[in-house]
Write a protein that binds this DNA or RNA. Structure first.
Lengths: 138, 138
DNA sequence: TCCAGTTCTTGACTCAGTCCAGAACTCTCT
DNA sequence: AGAGAGTTCTGGACTGAGTCAAGAACTGGA
C-alpha cells in the first residue's frame, strides 16, 4: 500500500495526525468498529475524540478509501479492502465477520432487473450463517 | 393470505390482539420501521407498548413470517413478503426502499465460494443508488 | 511568520433498541 | 364455565451508537 499521507493528499484531504492514525488503524484491524478503531488510535497517538474518528471514517468512505459495512444488530464496521467487490459472511452466534469473494464470478449482482428507475451504484451482499466454531459448540 | 390468527397458531404463537395488529400492520405498510408499525397499530387498537411491538416483530421474523432488513443509517424495516428471495434498492438521498427481484435468475448469491467453514443460510442483498425523483431534483 | 479556513475536543443530545418488575392476559385442565 | 400456570404486555429506566454545536487548536498557503 502506498504511503498513507500521500494517499490522503491525492484525494484532496488535508493530512492530520488523527486521520493518518485512523487510516492505519483501519488497515491493521479488519472489520473493526468505530469504537475499536478509536482504541487502536489512542494506543498510537495518545488521545482522539469520538468525533474525529467518525469524521475521518466518514470522509474516507465517501472518497472510497475505505468501505463501511453495517450488519443488522451490530455497529458499523470498516475495512480498507476496496475496489474488488467482495462480500461478507457474518456468524449469527458470535458475530465473526469474514471476507468472501463474489460467488458467481465478477460482480453478478450489480445489475438489478426491474429497478423502478433507480440508478444503482453499489450492491452490498451479506451472507448470514454460522461459523465453524459455533457449529462445533452447539 | 390466510387468516392471521390461524397463521399464528400454526406457528405455535399464542394469539393476542397486539400480535394480530402488528402482523396486519406489517402487511399493510411495506418497509415500515418498528416505530411506524407501532403508530399504525395504535390507530387500530388504541395503544401498544414499544416492547410488545419489538417482541412481536422479533418472534415473527424468527418464525419466518416476516422479513427484517436493516440498511445502514436507518432503523430496521419489516415486510411480509417472504420466501421469494427478493432484494431491496434504497435511495441514498431520500431513503426510499423498493423491492427488486433477484438479478440473475434464482438466488445466484446463496452459495459463497471460499466460505471459511461458514454454513450460510441466508444472503441479504442491498442495492444502493438514487431513485428517479432524487435524480430529477439534483 | 501570519492568517484564513479547516479540523479537533468536549460535552450535551437524539434515537433505536433492550432490560426489568409488576399487571394483564391466553390457554389448558377440570 | 372457572381456576391456575405460564406467558405476554405495560411503563419506565437504561444502554450504546452516532450526531450536533461552540470554541480551541491545527494545517497549508502567502
Amino acid at each position: 500500500m502506498m504511503d498513507p499521507a500521500e494517499l490522503l493528499r491525492q484525494n484532496g484531504i488535508p493530512v492530520t495526525a488523527q486521520r493518518l492514525a485512523v487510516l492505519r488503524a483501519v488497515s491493521s484491524v479488519p472489520h473493526a468498529t468505530a469504537d475499536a478503531i478509536a482504541e487502536v488510535v489512542r494506543g498510537k497517538i495518545g488521545t482522539i475524540s469520538k468525533q474525529a474518528v467518525y469524521d475521518a471514517l466518514g470522509m474516507f468512505s465517501k472518497k472510497g478509501l475505505i468501505r463501511r459495512i453495517q450488519p443488522a444488530g451490530s455497529p458499523a464496521l470498516f475495512e480498507d479492502r476496496v475496489g474488488d467487490n467482495h462480500h461478507h459472511a457474518i456468524c449469527r452466534m458470535c458475530g465473526k465477520t469474514v471476507d468472501v469473494d463474489c460467488a458467481v464470478g465478477k460482480a453478478p449482482c450489480l445489475t438489478a432487473s426491474g429497478d423502478s428507475g433507480f440508478h444503482i451504484d453499489e450492491a452490498e451482499v451479506i451472507y448470514w450463517g454460522t461459523c465453524a466454531e459455533c457449529r462445533a459448540v452447539s
